[in-house]
Design a protein around this nucleic acid. Structure first.
Length: 507
RNA sequence: CGGGGCGUGGCGCAGACUGGCAGCGCGCACGGUUCGGGACCGUGAGGUCGGAGGUUCAAAUCCUCUCGCCCCGACCA
């Protein structure tokens, strides 16, 4: 008896629970014995590795190089930038001792004699420690720009966590750059925002909007925070990457000075930018369906999985040989500049179960190969962007020759579908009543999927943001960079406004 | 930190009100029948019921204390 869907509940029934079940069914990650920390399992980690590989190439192509800085930051470093401390102090893990010993009850306790003179914090971000090194390395305008990136883990002691979307420890990259002029630093901030947007859209098929954050949503210590915002299938916004223009805030706090070409002392202008394992969650919530994860081909660890159909031992070697040669032939093809990634699944599992395991993992293309297909020199193909039973036979040579186009078609199709969903649920809103209606679910007890992106005017007043947040749980996600200047009135206060901003419920 | 809920084989749960041999479904192992499909039948392995103390002839169940986790809120990539 076939189930209707592989994932229960469906997105419609209970979106947050659907998400958890999808991650689980795809075997991508699970909660660990450590509070708020996840274990990323091989399939999930392979996705992250592909993200890393592609992003890293984009960083290199824009002139950045990788380096590595310590996991620990002296407490006093954090304190140097006033707003920075304020923002991060309440979520810092602190190391106070360097040795354990048996306590009165025989249990291990931190040794009083091994108390650190100055506590260390586990980095929640690395501006201060990297800035400290920058100050040593930068003397002259000839040392600039300095364009570094590091791949590492971060700890932020959040109250509530969810796999990939928000975990106490997470993986990310953080770019840190120093420039001679304000203009150069602004250009860098914008360039990296562009890199993130292109990556999200072209690689992960996640449509994003580039924008600047309001002061209340700004990175602690930044002059301006830019972000890319995406809409998930529950119509909530997810911040998918940030690029900060830090001005001279950190260079003044840490003392990063140089002599310019006229011999006068200046402070450098810095930027920082980051993207995290949250992107895996963003991708899942953008493309996933009621049968599980749907992976865009670019990021899929395996783009094609071959499922040998063997129901008699006599055909085993023939079928396996055909599958192996097909796999080799496919791997000689290329997609997005790389060899097609193919896997032959020879696990000792029942056919249906095996097929469904790959559906739940989100592999773009499945090929079922049995004696019948071999006789016709064809493949029996299923696509993850179509229904699980919507399969068809294709002549082998035609399939192999067209694999690159097929993967491209799936990649593009997923992006288009996601953009359509976002556009369908994005509206210009001009009255307070309409605004409240848009963000109020019909059923209060069990809120249905509702709302979306409201393009509405905002006067720039903080109190209006607070009203929207306390009344509706809605915040300004960003002030879109590409939206035109347009005189209007704030949808909440009626005060004059120069531009529409995006309001939404957010993760 | 405020409000709710839950800890029972690997996973999901029942049993608790009214104390009486620790159960069910899934998964797992083996055998068989099937199989271009998430099949079925049979057999089997696996639990000191989160922990400590108490009441009792007898505690998963009642009482006291304690630890942990999840959900809703505030915080957030």
């Amino acid at each position: 008896m076939a189930q209707k869907h592989a994932i229960s509940p469906t997105r419609e029934e209970n979106y947050p629970e659907w998400y958890q079940q999808v991650v689980r069914a795809a075997d991508m990650a699970e909660n660990s014995p450590v509070r708020g920390c996840m274990v990323i399992k091989p399939w999930g980690y392979a996705v992250w590795e592909n993200i890393q590989k592609n992003l890293d190439a984009r960083f290199k192509a824009t002139g950045h190089v990788n380096a590595y800085f310590p996991l620990f930051v002296p407490l006093s470093f954090l304190q140097r930038e006033a707003r920075h401390v304020e923002g991060f102090a309440k979520e810092c893990a602190v190391v106070t001792h360097h040795r354990l010993e048996a306590g009165p009850d025989g249990e291990l306790v931190p040794a009083p004699s091994a108390k650190l003179d100055e506590p260390l914090i586990v980095r929640p971000t690395s501006e201060t420690i990297i800035g400290e090194m920058f100050a040593k390395w930068i003397q002259s305008y000839r040392d600039l720009p300095l364009l570094l990136n590091q791949w590492c883990n971060i700890v932020r002691w959040e109250m509530r966590t969810r796999l990939f979307l928000r975990t106490t420890e997470f993986l990310w990259q953080e770019g840190h750059t120093a420039h001679a002029t304000r203009q150069e630093a602004l250009e860098e901030t914008d360039r990296m925002l562009g890199v993130y947007a292109d990556f999200a859209q072209d690689f992960l098929g996640v449509p994003v909007i580039k924008g600047v954050k309001t002061p209340s949503e700004r990175f602690p210590g930044a002059v301006d925070t830019y972000a890319i915002e995406a809409m998930m299938q529950d119509r909530k916004a997810l911040q998918a990457g940030t690029s900060h223009f830090l001005g001279q805030n950190f260079s003044k706090a840490v003392g990063i000075r140089f002599l310019d070409d006229s011999g006068s002392e200046q402070h450098v202008w810095t930027t920082s930018w980051g993207m995290t394992t949250r992107m895996v969650g963003a991708m899942i919530m953008t493309h996933g369906d009621d049968d599980g994860v749907v992976l865009p081909p670019c990021v899929a660890p395996s783009q094609v999985v071959i499922l040998p159909v063997i129901h008699k031992d006599e055909v085993r070697s023939q079928v396996m040989e055909y599958c192996q040669s097909l796999a080799r032939e496919l791997a000689e093809q290329s997609f997005a500049g790389q060899p097609v990634r193919v896997e032959v699944d020879s696990r000792d599992l029942r056919g249906g179960e095996k097929t469904w395991s790959w559906i739940k993992k989100g592999v773009p293309v499945r090929l079922e190969i049995g004696p019948r297909d071999i006789a016709q020199d064809s493949v029996f193909m299923g696509r993850r962007d179509k229904g699980p039973r919507e399969k068809k036979g294709v002549p082998r040579s035609e399939f192999v020759g067209g694999i690159s186009e097929l993967l491209q078609e799936i990649q593009q199709g997923l992006f288009d579908r996601a953009r359509k969903l976002r556009d369908t649920h994005s509206h210009k809103i001009d009255s307070r009543q309409e605004f409240y209606d848009f963000f109020t679910p019909k059923s209060r007890k069990r809120p249905e999927i509702h709302g979306g992106f409201a393009y509405a005017h905002w006067s720039g007043d903080r109190s209006e943001e607070e009203t929207a947040k306390s009344d509706l749980g809605v915040t300004i996600r960003c002030i879109p960079l590409d939206s035109p200047e347009e005189d209007g009135k704030c949808v909440l206060s009626g005060k004059p406004s120069p531009k529409r901003v995006i309001w939404a419920k957010a993760y």
